[in-house]
Each structure stands twice: as C-alpha cells, then as structure tokens.
Amino acid sequence: MTSATARPLPAEWRDFFALTKPRVMTLVIFTGLCGLLAAPGHIHPVLGFTAILCIALGAGGAATLNQWWEAGIDAGMKRTAGRPIPSGRMAPTNARDFGIALSVASVLIMGLGIGWLAATILLVSILYYAVVYTIWLKPRTPQNIVIGGGAGAFPPMIGWVAVTGHVTLMPVLLFAIIFMWTPPHFWALALFIKSDYAKVGIPMMPVVRGQASTRKQILAYTVLLVPIAGAPWFIGETGAIYGVTALALSLLFLALSLPVAFRRSEDGDAMKPEKRLFAFSIIYLFALFAALVVDRIAAHQGIFA
C-alpha cells in the first residue's frame, strides 16, 4: 500500500457543485425563465426546460472557470478562502476541466436542441464572464462591477431568444435593465461590508475612488434605471401591469438611493440606508421580472404551445 499513500483523496461531488455558485444561479435561472416566459411565441415545455438548463449549466461553467482562475486571490480573502480550490479540497486542473466541460456541454445542447443563435449568445456570455471580466478587466479597473454586471445581464436575453429565434429591442432592454441594476446593487453592499479586496489587489470602487464617488455613481445608475425599466412599456411591448409596476419599483429604488448618495458614514455607522437599498435591490429585480411575466400572461399571448 506504500504507493497508494501519496494518492490524494478525490474531491467530493458537493465540491464540484459548490464551484458552480448555486446561490448566484438561482437569480440566473429566475431571470432566464422570466425572459423565456415573457417572450412572444410558443416553446414546448421540454424545450423550455432544456433552454433554462443550458443557461444554468453555462453559468455554472463560467463560475467554475472564474474560481479556477482566481484561486490565488480567493485564498487571500476570508470570505472566499474556504472555497474548494483555495482550501485544497480540489486540484485546480480538475476544476478547470469541469468548468470547460460544463461550458461546452451547455453550448452544444443549446445549439442542437434549441437553436444556434441562443447557443451563440450563451457562448459569448460564458467567454465574457470567464475571460473579459475575470481574467482581463476585474483586476484592472474599479469599473469591474459594471463590466461584471454585463455577464449577469445575459440570461433573460438568452431565454427570450430561445423562444423567438432572433434578437429584437426587447431582449436588449432586458439586458440593459440588469446591466444598470448591478452597480447600485453591488456597491450598496460594498459600502457596508468590510471586504479585503484591497489586500489581494482587486480595485473595488469604494476603495479606489472613495466613498463619496461610489455614492454618487450609485445614484447615477438608479437614475438611468428609471427610463430603461419603463422602456418596454413606453415602446408598447408590454402592458400597463408591467409599466406601472416597473415605474413604481424604479422610483422607490431611486428614492432609497437618494439618502445613500447624499450622506457620509463615520466609523461605527450602522449603515442603515445602504443595507435598506441593498435589500430592496434584490426584491426589485425579482418583482420587476415577475411583473413582466404576469403582464404577458394577462395579455393572453399564451406561453406554451
């Protein structure tokens, strides 16, 4: 048995599952499903399920590749040091191969089962997150969250295109909504969570440009979000159910970001406005996309063939 003593323990399947960031994936699945359900036209439930599965697999693959690349960074931060690779429970190459396998499988199944346009956008989203964001821009610019938000904005667009087969203004608007939503969502969190990003050389906005600048930028994005979230109604692609809900939610989001934008925090500050804004940002996205689906169902356009 001497030769076997050097053999490392194989990683548990749970560690592979953890690499796919299951909690982030719930939001990906929800927004992807809403894009699919809100799109005009019909898709067979089996194919709709396959499309959502592929979006989830692709997101899992990209998340895995992200953790493979950032294992060194993750090891230096308390929040992430326990992840499968930095904790030593999994060999980096295993994670890399798992991430590539998930990504390739998701794109191929999407292409063969649903359509190659949806598959192409899925591939672009994976490469965008794993390469453009993780490898290239995240360590280089404090706008990294803005860029990373682009990756999170793809799922509803892919869900929509899986049904319609072509890119129109609506899926682009759904993309733009999540794109504008991400910076205030994340920076609100970054203001009240003491992170150790600075220690590992990731330039997060509050650390690099300071609190005051971050607060102003949060406001800028929530202001931009109001017309963009309302746009699907303004251009007549949705009814008043979505329109009124979107405007009410967006104005409330804006109202909550005002106190965040125009205050400074001292040491020992309870950070109530920032925590409130962050908590609401999550409700905002779920409620907005749910309203989109309810609006479509109410318009009797039909969902499934």
Binding site: T5, L9, P10, A11, E12, W13
Partner: peptide, 20 residues
Amino acid sequence: MTPEEETEFRRRQRGRNLAL
C-alpha cells in the same frame, strides 16, 4: 493508506460515481 483513509477514499469515489 490507513484503513480509515481507504474507507473515506471509497466513500468519496462512490459518491462521485453515483452523481455522474
């Protein structure tokens, strides 16, 4: 490998095989 390690090795291997 001690018997305990051997058991753990087999347990993880079985878990992964079942998942796959």
